[in-house]
Design a binder for these strands. Structure first.
Length: 414
RNA sequence: GGGUAGGUGCCCGAGUGGUUAAAGGGAACAGACUGUAAAUCUGUCACCGCGAGGUUACGAUGGUUCGAAUCCAUCCCUGCCCA
Protein backbone atom coordinates (compact mmCIF):
# COMPACT_ATOMS: atom_id res chain seq x y z
CA UNK A 1 0.00 0.00 0.00
CA UNK A 2 1.36 3.33 -0.98
CA UNK A 3 0.08 5.77 1.53
CA UNK A 4 -0.99 9.00 -0.02
CA UNK A 5 0.08 12.15 1.62
CA UNK A 6 -0.38 15.44 -0.09
CA UNK A 7 -0.70 13.62 -3.39
CA UNK A 8 2.70 12.03 -3.10
CA UNK A 9 3.06 8.29 -2.84
CA UNK A 10 4.97 7.48 0.31
CA UNK A 11 7.49 4.75 0.32
CA UNK A 12 6.69 2.15 2.96
CA UNK A 13 10.05 2.95 4.45
CA UNK A 14 9.01 6.53 4.89
CA UNK A 15 5.72 5.42 6.34
CA UNK A 16 7.49 3.32 8.93
CA UNK A 17 9.81 6.15 9.65
CA UNK A 18 7.07 8.70 9.90
CA UNK A 19 5.16 6.56 12.36
CA UNK A 20 8.24 6.18 14.48
CA UNK A 21 8.87 2.50 14.06
CA UNK A 22 12.42 2.64 12.90
CA UNK A 23 15.23 2.64 15.40
CA UNK A 24 18.27 1.57 13.37
CA UNK A 25 18.90 0.43 9.84
CA UNK A 26 21.92 -1.08 8.21
CA UNK A 27 21.75 0.70 4.87
CA UNK A 28 19.19 3.42 4.86
CA UNK A 29 19.21 4.56 1.26
CA UNK A 30 19.51 1.10 -0.19
CA UNK A 31 16.68 -0.20 1.94
CA UNK A 32 14.49 2.66 0.95
CA UNK A 33 15.18 2.00 -2.67
CA UNK A 34 14.76 -1.75 -2.31
CA UNK A 35 11.41 -1.47 -0.62
CA UNK A 36 10.17 0.92 -3.25
CA UNK A 37 11.28 -1.07 -6.25
CA UNK A 38 10.94 -4.64 -5.20
CA UNK A 39 8.55 -6.85 -3.29
CA UNK A 40 10.80 -8.57 -0.85
CA UNK A 41 10.57 -11.25 1.76
CA UNK A 42 11.68 -10.24 5.22
CA UNK A 43 11.56 -11.90 8.56
CA UNK A 44 11.01 -11.27 12.20
CA UNK A 45 11.83 -13.82 14.82
CA UNK A 46 9.56 -14.76 17.68
CA UNK A 47 10.65 -16.85 20.60
CA UNK A 48 7.96 -19.26 21.66
CA UNK A 49 8.65 -18.90 25.34
CA UNK A 50 5.02 -18.54 26.36
CA UNK A 51 1.71 -19.77 25.07
CA UNK A 52 0.59 -16.32 24.06
CA UNK A 53 2.00 -13.28 22.36
CA UNK A 54 2.15 -10.03 24.26
CA UNK A 55 2.34 -6.36 23.36
CA UNK A 56 6.02 -6.54 22.62
CA UNK A 57 5.27 -8.97 19.83
CA UNK A 58 2.33 -6.89 18.79
CA UNK A 59 4.61 -4.10 17.70
CA UNK A 60 6.48 -6.48 15.45
CA UNK A 61 3.24 -7.66 13.99
CA UNK A 62 2.23 -4.10 13.26
CA UNK A 63 5.44 -3.71 11.31
CA UNK A 64 4.77 -6.91 9.44
CA UNK A 65 1.23 -5.83 8.71
CA UNK A 66 2.40 -2.50 7.33
CA UNK A 67 4.98 -4.25 5.21
CA UNK A 68 2.49 -6.80 3.98
CA UNK A 69 0.08 -4.08 2.97
CA UNK A 70 2.89 -2.58 0.96
CA UNK A 71 3.26 -5.84 -0.89
CA UNK A 72 6.16 -7.38 0.94
CA UNK A 73 6.11 -10.87 2.32
CA UNK A 74 6.54 -11.41 6.05
CA UNK A 75 8.14 -14.51 7.36
CA UNK A 76 7.41 -15.25 10.98
CA UNK A 77 10.28 -17.22 12.23
CA UNK A 78 9.44 -19.16 15.30
CA UNK A 79 12.51 -19.80 17.35
CA UNK A 80 11.72 -23.38 18.15
CA UNK A 81 15.39 -24.22 17.94
CA UNK A 82 16.80 -21.12 19.52
CA UNK A 83 14.28 -21.22 22.34
CA UNK A 84 16.14 -24.16 23.70
CA UNK A 85 19.18 -21.96 24.10
CA UNK A 86 18.06 -18.62 25.44
CA UNK A 87 18.81 -15.16 24.24
CA UNK A 88 21.13 -13.20 26.48
CA UNK A 89 20.02 -9.83 25.09
CA UNK A 90 19.07 -7.59 27.92
CA UNK A 91 18.64 -10.42 30.30
CA UNK A 92 20.18 -10.87 33.64
CA UNK A 93 19.22 -14.45 34.03
CA UNK A 94 19.30 -17.33 31.66
CA UNK A 95 16.10 -18.11 29.96
CA UNK A 96 14.54 -21.35 30.93
CA UNK A 97 14.83 -24.09 28.41
CA UNK A 98 11.67 -25.47 26.97
CA UNK A 99 10.72 -28.93 25.95
CA UNK A 100 9.80 -29.66 22.36
CA UNK A 101 6.18 -30.28 23.30
CA UNK A 102 5.89 -26.93 25.01
CA UNK A 103 7.45 -25.21 22.05
CA UNK A 104 5.11 -26.83 19.63
CA UNK A 105 2.12 -25.94 21.71
CA UNK A 106 3.29 -22.34 21.95
CA UNK A 107 3.86 -22.13 18.22
CA UNK A 108 0.31 -23.18 17.54
CA UNK A 109 -0.97 -20.56 19.90
CA UNK A 110 1.17 -17.93 18.21
CA UNK A 111 -0.09 -18.73 14.78
CA UNK A 112 -3.70 -18.43 15.81
CA UNK A 113 -3.06 -15.00 17.23
CA UNK A 114 -0.98 -13.82 14.33
CA UNK A 115 -3.61 -14.68 11.81
CA UNK A 116 -5.61 -11.75 13.04
CA UNK A 117 -3.00 -9.34 11.79
CA UNK A 118 -1.16 -11.13 9.07
CA UNK A 119 -2.66 -12.75 6.02
CA UNK A 120 -1.15 -16.18 5.66
CA UNK A 121 -3.26 -17.27 2.69
CA UNK A 122 -1.57 -18.10 -0.62
CA UNK A 123 1.85 -17.82 0.97
CA UNK A 124 1.38 -14.09 1.40
CA UNK A 125 3.13 -14.66 4.65
CA UNK A 126 5.02 -17.63 5.96
CA UNK A 127 5.52 -19.14 9.30
CA UNK A 128 8.54 -21.32 9.77
CA UNK A 129 10.26 -22.87 12.70
CA UNK A 130 14.01 -22.70 12.84
CA UNK A 131 14.05 -26.02 14.64
CA UNK A 132 13.68 -27.45 11.14
CA UNK A 133 17.26 -26.70 10.31
CA UNK A 134 18.91 -25.96 13.61
CA UNK A 135 18.17 -29.40 15.00
CA UNK A 136 19.89 -31.00 12.06
CA UNK A 137 22.98 -28.89 12.17
CA UNK A 138 26.22 -30.68 12.31
CA UNK A 139 28.80 -29.04 14.49
CA UNK A 140 31.76 -29.56 12.20
CA UNK A 141 29.89 -28.38 9.16
CA UNK A 142 28.64 -25.34 10.96
CA UNK A 143 32.07 -24.45 12.18
CA UNK A 144 33.51 -24.77 8.71
CA UNK A 145 30.65 -22.90 7.04
CA UNK A 146 30.13 -19.95 9.24
CA UNK A 147 32.92 -20.12 11.79
CA UNK A 148 35.47 -18.22 9.73
CA UNK A 149 33.08 -15.35 9.23
CA UNK A 150 32.67 -14.46 12.85
CA UNK A 151 35.23 -12.59 14.85
CA UNK A 152 34.98 -13.40 18.50
CA UNK A 153 36.69 -10.15 19.30
CA UNK A 154 33.96 -8.32 17.51
CA UNK A 155 31.19 -10.37 18.95
CA UNK A 156 32.39 -9.60 22.42
CA UNK A 157 32.13 -5.91 21.78
CA UNK A 158 28.47 -6.25 20.88
CA UNK A 159 26.26 -4.29 23.20
CA UNK A 160 24.15 -7.28 24.13
CA UNK A 161 27.15 -9.18 25.42
CA UNK A 162 28.82 -6.26 27.10
CA UNK A 163 26.26 -6.23 29.86
CA UNK A 164 26.67 -9.94 30.19
CA UNK A 165 30.39 -9.73 30.60
CA UNK A 166 29.96 -8.72 34.18
CA UNK A 167 27.31 -11.18 35.18
CA UNK A 168 28.68 -14.04 33.21
CA UNK A 169 27.92 -15.33 29.78
CA UNK A 170 27.90 -18.97 28.94
CA UNK A 171 29.06 -20.41 25.66
CA UNK A 172 25.53 -21.59 25.13
CA UNK A 173 24.15 -18.10 25.19
CA UNK A 174 27.06 -16.73 23.28
CA UNK A 175 26.00 -18.89 20.38
CA UNK A 176 22.63 -17.30 20.13
CA UNK A 177 23.94 -14.66 17.80
CA UNK A 178 25.45 -17.22 15.50
CA UNK A 179 22.29 -19.21 15.33
CA UNK A 180 20.27 -16.15 14.58
CA UNK A 181 22.66 -15.16 11.85
CA UNK A 182 22.45 -18.67 10.52
CA UNK A 183 18.67 -18.41 10.47
CA UNK A 184 18.85 -15.35 8.29
CA UNK A 185 21.17 -17.13 5.91
CA UNK A 186 18.92 -20.15 5.78
CA UNK A 187 15.84 -18.04 5.14
CA UNK A 188 17.73 -16.22 2.42
CA UNK A 189 18.56 -19.47 0.73
CA UNK A 190 15.10 -20.96 1.12
CA UNK A 191 12.87 -17.97 0.53
CA UNK A 192 15.14 -15.28 -0.79
CA UNK A 193 14.60 -13.40 2.41
CA UNK A 194 16.52 -10.14 2.16
CA UNK A 195 15.86 -8.36 5.34
CA UNK A 196 15.67 -9.10 9.00
CA UNK A 197 13.68 -6.94 11.30
CA UNK A 198 13.36 -7.02 15.03
CA UNK A 199 13.20 -5.02 18.20
CA UNK A 200 16.09 -2.69 18.78
CA UNK A 201 17.52 -5.07 21.37
CA UNK A 202 18.12 -7.44 18.46
CA UNK A 203 20.41 -5.06 16.61
CA UNK A 204 23.59 -6.98 17.32
CA UNK A 205 22.05 -10.24 16.27
CA UNK A 206 20.62 -8.74 13.15
CA UNK A 207 23.82 -7.22 11.91
CA UNK A 208 25.52 -10.53 12.55
CA UNK A 209 23.17 -12.13 10.04
CA UNK A 210 23.49 -9.30 7.57
CA UNK A 211 27.25 -9.51 7.71
CA UNK A 212 27.28 -13.26 7.43
CA UNK A 213 25.27 -13.17 4.22
CA UNK A 214 27.36 -10.38 2.80
CA UNK A 215 30.65 -12.03 3.63
CA UNK A 216 29.94 -15.62 2.96
CA UNK A 217 27.53 -15.43 0.05
CA UNK A 218 28.24 -11.92 -1.10
CA UNK A 219 24.51 -11.44 -1.04
CA UNK A 220 23.09 -8.06 -0.26
CA UNK A 221 21.22 -8.35 3.01
CA UNK A 222 19.62 -5.74 5.16
CA UNK A 223 18.60 -5.20 8.71
CA UNK A 224 16.22 -2.89 10.42
CA UNK A 225 15.21 -2.59 14.02
CA UNK A 226 12.11 -0.98 15.37
CA UNK A 227 11.68 1.12 18.45
CA UNK A 228 11.06 -0.75 21.61
CA UNK A 229 7.75 0.04 23.16
CA UNK A 230 8.81 1.92 26.21
CA UNK A 231 7.07 4.48 28.32
CA UNK A 232 8.25 8.04 28.50
CA UNK A 233 10.03 6.95 31.64
CA UNK A 234 11.99 4.38 29.75
CA UNK A 235 10.27 1.36 31.14
CA UNK A 236 9.01 -1.45 29.05
CA UNK A 237 5.46 -0.95 28.12
CA UNK A 238 2.89 -3.63 28.62
CA UNK A 239 3.73 -4.54 32.14
CA UNK A 240 0.84 -4.98 34.46
CA UNK A 241 0.62 -5.95 38.09
CA UNK A 242 -0.05 -9.47 36.94
CA UNK A 243 2.83 -9.52 34.50
CA UNK A 244 2.76 -9.06 30.77
CA UNK A 245 -0.14 -7.67 28.86
CA UNK A 246 -1.14 -10.72 26.87
CA UNK A 247 -3.03 -10.88 23.65
CA UNK A 248 -4.80 -14.01 24.77
CA UNK A 249 -8.17 -12.98 26.25
CA UNK A 250 -7.93 -15.80 28.74
CA UNK A 251 -4.74 -14.36 30.13
CA UNK A 252 -5.63 -10.68 29.90
CA UNK A 253 -9.30 -9.89 29.53
CA UNK A 254 -10.32 -7.48 26.76
CA UNK A 255 -11.55 -5.14 29.47
CA UNK A 256 -8.19 -5.11 31.23
CA UNK A 257 -6.50 -4.77 27.89
CA UNK A 258 -8.64 -1.80 27.01
CA UNK A 259 -8.04 -0.23 30.38
CA UNK A 260 -4.31 -0.55 30.00
CA UNK A 261 -4.30 1.65 26.93
CA UNK A 262 -6.94 3.94 28.34
CA UNK A 263 -4.50 4.65 31.15
CA UNK A 264 -1.22 5.30 29.36
CA UNK A 265 0.46 8.56 30.30
CA UNK A 266 -0.20 11.64 28.30
CA UNK A 267 3.35 11.60 27.06
CA UNK A 268 2.95 8.19 25.50
CA UNK A 269 -0.36 8.56 23.74
CA UNK A 270 0.91 9.83 20.45
CA UNK A 271 3.62 7.25 20.22
CA UNK A 272 1.16 4.47 20.93
CA UNK A 273 -1.32 5.72 18.38
CA UNK A 274 1.35 5.85 15.72
CA UNK A 275 2.83 2.49 16.51
CA UNK A 276 -0.17 0.44 17.52
CA UNK A 277 -2.97 1.62 15.27
CA UNK A 278 -3.46 2.15 11.58
CA UNK A 279 -4.99 5.56 12.02
CA UNK A 280 -3.69 8.03 9.46
CA UNK A 281 -0.87 10.18 10.74
CA UNK A 282 -2.90 13.36 10.44
CA UNK A 283 -5.32 11.86 12.93
CA UNK A 284 -2.52 10.59 15.13
CA UNK A 285 -0.98 14.03 15.19
CA UNK A 286 -4.25 15.70 15.92
CA UNK A 287 -5.13 13.36 18.77
CA UNK A 288 -1.61 13.37 20.10
CA UNK A 289 -1.50 17.12 20.42
CA UNK A 290 -4.65 17.40 22.52
CA UNK A 291 -3.97 18.96 25.86
CA UNK A 292 -5.15 18.48 29.43
CA UNK A 293 -8.53 16.82 29.78
CA UNK A 294 -8.91 16.64 26.06
CA UNK A 295 -6.23 14.07 25.67
CA UNK A 296 -8.53 11.61 27.34
CA UNK A 297 -10.35 11.46 24.04
CA UNK A 298 -7.15 10.39 22.37
CA UNK A 299 -6.69 7.70 24.99
CA UNK A 300 -10.19 6.42 24.33
CA UNK A 301 -9.46 6.16 20.66
CA UNK A 302 -6.19 4.41 21.35
CA UNK A 303 -7.75 1.92 23.71
CA UNK A 304 -10.60 1.17 21.38
CA UNK A 305 -8.48 0.81 18.27
CA UNK A 306 -5.90 -1.45 19.81
CA UNK A 307 -8.50 -3.59 21.54
CA UNK A 308 -10.40 -3.86 18.29
CA UNK A 309 -7.38 -5.13 16.47
CA UNK A 310 -6.45 -7.66 19.08
CA UNK A 311 -9.84 -8.87 20.23
CA UNK A 312 -12.20 -7.82 17.47
CA UNK A 313 -14.73 -5.05 17.25
CA UNK A 314 -17.40 -6.74 19.33
CA UNK A 315 -15.12 -7.22 22.31
CA UNK A 316 -13.74 -3.71 21.92
CA UNK A 317 -17.23 -2.25 22.09
CA UNK A 318 -18.02 -4.30 25.16
CA UNK A 319 -14.87 -3.16 26.88
CA UNK A 320 -15.54 0.43 25.98
CA UNK A 321 -19.11 0.26 27.23
CA UNK A 322 -18.03 -1.35 30.45
CA UNK A 323 -15.46 1.36 31.02
CA UNK A 324 -17.96 4.08 30.29
CA UNK A 325 -20.51 2.54 32.61
CA UNK A 326 -18.00 2.40 35.41
CA UNK A 327 -16.21 5.67 35.00
CA UNK A 328 -18.88 7.93 33.59
CA UNK A 329 -21.70 6.30 35.45
CA UNK A 330 -23.78 5.88 32.35
CA UNK A 331 -24.82 2.87 30.43
CA UNK A 332 -25.24 -0.76 31.21
CA UNK A 333 -23.05 -2.73 33.51
CA UNK A 334 -23.47 -5.96 31.57
CA UNK A 335 -19.92 -6.12 30.34
CA UNK A 336 -18.17 -5.09 33.49
CA UNK A 337 -15.79 -7.67 34.92
CA UNK A 338 -18.11 -9.98 36.73
CA UNK A 339 -17.65 -12.57 39.39
CA UNK A 340 -20.34 -15.11 39.97
CA UNK A 341 -20.93 -16.19 43.52
CA UNK A 342 -23.05 -19.01 44.69
CA UNK A 343 -25.81 -17.82 46.97
CA UNK A 344 -24.43 -19.66 49.96
CA UNK A 345 -21.62 -17.13 50.15
CA UNK A 346 -24.13 -14.75 51.67
CA UNK A 347 -23.24 -14.56 55.32
CA UNK A 348 -19.49 -14.89 54.77
CA UNK A 349 -17.11 -12.07 55.37
CA UNK A 350 -16.55 -9.96 52.31
CA UNK A 351 -12.84 -10.07 52.79
CA UNK A 352 -12.82 -13.85 52.74
CA UNK A 353 -14.89 -13.95 49.59
CA UNK A 354 -12.59 -11.53 47.83
CA UNK A 355 -9.53 -13.49 48.83
CA UNK A 356 -11.15 -16.62 47.56
CA UNK A 357 -11.97 -14.95 44.26
CA UNK A 358 -8.34 -13.82 43.97
CA UNK A 359 -9.23 -10.16 44.06
CA UNK A 360 -6.96 -9.92 47.06
CA UNK A 361 -3.71 -11.79 46.96
CA UNK A 362 -3.96 -12.47 50.65
CA UNK A 363 -6.13 -11.60 53.57
CA UNK A 364 -3.45 -9.30 54.86
CA UNK A 365 -3.48 -7.36 51.63
CA UNK A 366 -7.24 -7.07 51.72
CA UNK A 367 -7.21 -5.89 55.27
CA UNK A 368 -4.62 -3.29 54.53
CA UNK A 369 -6.59 -2.05 51.57
CA UNK A 370 -9.74 -1.71 53.63
CA UNK A 371 -7.88 0.03 56.42
CA UNK A 372 -6.49 2.45 53.89
CA UNK A 373 -9.93 3.23 52.60
CA UNK A 374 -9.31 1.45 49.36
CA UNK A 375 -12.41 -0.67 49.08
CA UNK A 376 -15.91 0.46 48.23
CA UNK A 377 -19.10 -1.50 48.04
CA UNK A 378 -21.82 0.01 45.90
CA UNK A 379 -19.87 3.28 46.01
CA UNK A 380 -19.64 3.38 49.76
CA UNK A 381 -16.28 3.17 51.45
CA UNK A 382 -16.01 0.06 53.48
CA UNK A 383 -14.22 0.48 56.76
CA UNK A 384 -15.38 -2.60 58.58
CA UNK A 385 -12.95 -5.41 57.97
CA UNK A 386 -15.40 -7.95 59.25
CA UNK A 387 -18.26 -6.79 57.09
CA UNK A 388 -20.47 -9.67 56.12
CA UNK A 389 -21.94 -9.94 52.67
CA UNK A 390 -25.70 -9.77 52.92
CA UNK A 391 -28.63 -9.80 50.56
CA UNK A 392 -29.04 -6.07 51.03
CA UNK A 393 -25.75 -5.49 49.30
CA UNK A 394 -27.26 -6.72 46.08
CA UNK A 395 -29.25 -4.37 43.99
CA UNK A 396 -30.84 -6.15 41.07
CA UNK A 397 -28.77 -9.14 42.01
CA UNK A 398 -25.58 -7.21 41.54
CA UNK A 399 -23.06 -5.79 43.95
CA UNK A 400 -20.32 -3.43 42.79
CA UNK A 401 -16.95 -3.73 44.40
CA UNK A 402 -14.33 -1.10 43.79
CA UNK A 403 -10.78 -1.87 44.73
CA UNK A 404 -8.46 1.07 44.80
CA UNK A 405 -9.17 3.87 42.44
CA UNK A 406 -10.13 2.10 39.31
CA UNK A 407 -10.55 -1.59 39.63
CA UNK A 408 -14.14 -2.66 39.57
CA UNK A 409 -15.75 -6.01 40.05
CA UNK A 410 -19.38 -6.83 39.82
CA UNK A 411 -20.57 -9.60 42.07
CA UNK A 412 -23.54 -11.59 40.93
CA UNK A 413 -25.40 -14.26 42.82
CA UNK A 414 -26.10 -17.50 41.14
C1' G B 1 41.73 -28.09 38.84
C1' G B 2 44.20 -23.98 42.36
C1' G B 3 43.44 -19.11 44.67
C1' U B 4 39.87 -15.44 45.86
C1' A B 5 35.16 -12.62 46.41
C1' G B 6 30.24 -13.58 46.66
C1' G B 7 24.81 -15.95 46.78
C1' U B 8 19.83 -11.57 51.61
C1' G B 9 12.71 -10.12 50.69
C1' C B 10 9.72 -8.31 43.48
C1' C B 11 14.80 -5.85 42.06
C1' C B 12 19.28 -3.33 43.88
C1' G B 13 21.60 -3.43 48.50
C1' A B 14 23.04 -2.91 54.16
C1' G B 15 23.57 -6.28 58.03
C1' U B 16 28.19 -10.56 60.63
C1' G B 17 25.47 -14.56 67.27
C1' G B 18 20.15 -12.07 70.52
C1' U B 19 16.87 -5.40 70.64
C1' U B 20 16.44 -8.26 62.67
C1' A B 21 10.41 -9.90 59.38
C1' A B 22 15.81 -7.94 58.45
C1' A B 23 18.45 -0.47 57.28
C1' G B 24 18.34 2.35 52.64
C1' G B 25 16.78 2.95 47.57
C1' G B 26 13.74 1.51 43.44
C1' A B 27 9.32 -0.96 41.90
C1' A B 28 4.38 -1.96 43.44
C1' C B 29 -0.21 -0.90 46.17
C1' A B 30 -3.57 2.60 48.93
C1' G B 31 -5.07 7.77 50.38
C1' A B 32 -5.05 13.21 49.18
C1' C B 33 -4.75 16.31 44.75
C1' U B 34 -6.50 15.49 39.47
C1' G B 35 -8.32 14.46 33.76
C1' U B 36 -9.50 6.77 34.68
C1' A B 37 -2.76 11.52 33.23
C1' A B 38 2.00 13.12 35.21
C1' A B 39 4.39 15.34 39.28
C1' U B 40 3.98 15.92 44.55
C1' C B 41 2.79 14.75 49.66
C1' U B 42 1.16 10.74 53.20
C1' G B 43 0.73 5.69 54.36
C1' U B 44 1.45 0.42 53.28
C1' C B 45 4.52 -3.26 51.33
C1' A B 46 6.12 -12.20 54.12
C1' C B 47 1.78 -15.25 55.82
C1' C B 48 -2.12 -16.26 59.63
C1' G B 49 -4.67 -13.63 63.73
C1' C B 50 -9.28 -8.09 65.89
C1' G B 51 -5.23 -8.35 69.24
C1' A B 52 -1.57 -10.40 72.33
C1' G B 53 0.90 -13.50 69.48
C1' G B 54 2.18 -17.36 66.07
C1' U B 55 4.31 -19.41 61.47
C1' U B 56 7.68 -19.28 57.45
C1' A B 57 12.14 -16.57 55.42
C1' C B 58 18.47 -14.45 54.26
C1' G B 59 21.68 -20.48 47.91
C1' A B 60 20.84 -26.16 49.82
C1' U B 61 21.47 -29.71 53.64
C1' G B 62 23.21 -30.97 58.26
C1' G B 63 25.64 -29.24 62.90
C1' U B 64 27.34 -25.89 67.23
C1' U B 65 24.41 -22.74 70.64
C1' C B 66 19.46 -21.15 75.54
C1' G B 67 19.41 -18.39 70.76
C1' A B 68 22.03 -18.15 63.86
C1' A B 69 20.95 -14.38 57.92
C1' U B 70 25.18 -14.03 61.13
C1' C B 71 29.70 -19.55 63.70
C1' C B 72 31.20 -24.77 61.66
C1' A B 73 30.87 -28.83 57.80
C1' U B 74 29.44 -30.60 53.16
C1' C B 75 27.17 -29.54 48.61
C1' C B 76 25.22 -26.34 44.52
C1' C B 77 25.68 -21.70 41.80
C1' U B 78 28.27 -16.99 40.13
C1' G B 79 32.26 -13.22 39.38
C1' C B 80 37.56 -12.33 39.23
C1' C B 81 42.75 -14.16 38.96
C1' C B 82 45.98 -18.44 37.78
C1' A B 83 46.22 -23.15 34.91
Amino acid sequence: MQTKLGGLALNIYDTLKERGYIAQVTHEEEIRKLLAEEKISFYIGFDPTADSLHVGHFLGMMVMAHMQRAGHRPICLIGGGTATVGDPSGRTDMRQMLTDEMIEHNCNCFKKQMQRFIDFTDDKALMVNNGEWLHKLNYINLLRDVGPHFSVNRMLTAECYKQRMEKGLTFLEFNYMIMQAYDFMELNHRYNCKMEMGGDDQWSNIIAGVELLRRKDETPAFGLTFTLLTTSEGKKMGKTAKGALWLDPKKTSPYDFYQYWRNVSDADVKKCLALLTFLPMEEVNRLGSLKDKEINDAKKVLAFEVTKMVHGEEEAIKAKEAAEALFSGSGVLDNVPTIKLSSNTIGSKIIDILVQEKIFASKGEGKRLIQQNGLSINDEKLNDIDKILSCEDFIDNSCMIKKGKKKYYRLILQ
